[in-house]
Write a protein that binds this DNA or RNA. Structure first.
Lengths: 160, 160
DNA sequence: CGGCGTAATTACGCGCCTGTGGTCATCGCA
DNA sequence: TGCGATGACCACAGGCGCGTAATTACGCCG
């Protein structure tokens, strides 16, 4: 009936269409990003026509961060570099920190470190994004769209 | 002999080619930006083939700020919006402040105000750029390139 | 006044990102 | 096991932001 049925472990996935709807991007963007290796669905990748991609909650968070960066006028190419860097150098819990992009340098930091960085304010542009607020917005969108897919649990348990 | 001859008032202009060289962008970019109304030369605009554009020092500063934003991965379209907003709402001395772009809001602020903004860190991306450092870099580039155009005064008198 | 250098103009092409539309494999369901 | 819905795949189009190259016009200088 719905593609958001909870599995036996309570960890549900999101289909491509639903992921795009929740995040607030077009399906074509989601598709393009998946096949150009920006964000691949971590639960189930596509394997030919007719297969189904399955996005995790964490994937949605990444997608939403990317959407925020795009909305802020940042080029997709730049977003790609930032995320490839992040994936190689950071495994910390992303949701708690603030993302800072400064040229080719990317880092996650907490509030005080952030103030420090901004105060010294190198010689380039700083792109600053609080992941926490992104997560809040994402959860709100999830609750909104949950009405269309009744049997799904709300993601409250995932708040970290 | 040179297109950077100082006039009787000491206020010299920069040709298109030199402006591009000093700022560090291609001539095609400068040309494109001029004819699409991003930055027009304030001393003398083009008037047909064979005419000469004349950029002021202030123009160079704007161009350099734009270059910084582009280098940071910000889309030209977004830069356009920011500058059209700035030109309509702000006549303060740009060189002293910090430029902050937050979605469709653009503002110039000093150090303390900046910290305040970052601390509360709205729900989007903040693009932060200290204009002072841009000006410093620009002046350095001017001094470097002055060797190619000997008779020109250094822009030290223009420091704000 | 006629060549010469500079530079603005124009035409053309490319790569990126994305929207549109159609095709086709797969899944859910009866 | 066939049928309809879903969604991945593919071909194409289009705008933006330039690069490249040729063309045209101005200004200077001999």
């Amino acid at each position: 009936m719905s593609d958001t049925m909870a599995g036996s472990n309570g960890q549900m996935g999101f289909s491509g269409t639903r992921a795009a709807a929740v995040v607030g991007i077009s399906y074509r963007q989601l598709d393009y990003w998946a096949r150009t290796d920006l964000v691949r669905p971590s639960l189930a990748d596509a394997s030919g026509s007719g297969s189904r991609r399955q996005y995790s909650y964490r994937d949605l968070l990444e997608l939403r961060v990317i959407k925020s960066l795009l909305d802020a006028g940042i080029k997709l190419e730049s977003v790609r570099k930032a995320f490839s860097y992040l994936r190689e150098n950071v495994d910390a819990d992303i949701a708690a920190a603030t993302l800072v992009i400064s040229g080719s340098d990317v880092l996650l930091c907490d509030g005080d470190t952030l103030i420090d960085i901004v105060r010294r304010g190198g010689q380039g542009v700083l792109n600053v994004l609080a992941i926490g607020s992104v997560k809040t917005d994402l959860d709100a969108s999830l609750v909104e769209l949950a009405q269309d897919a009744p049997a799904a649990d709300l993601p409250a348990a995932q708040a970290g």
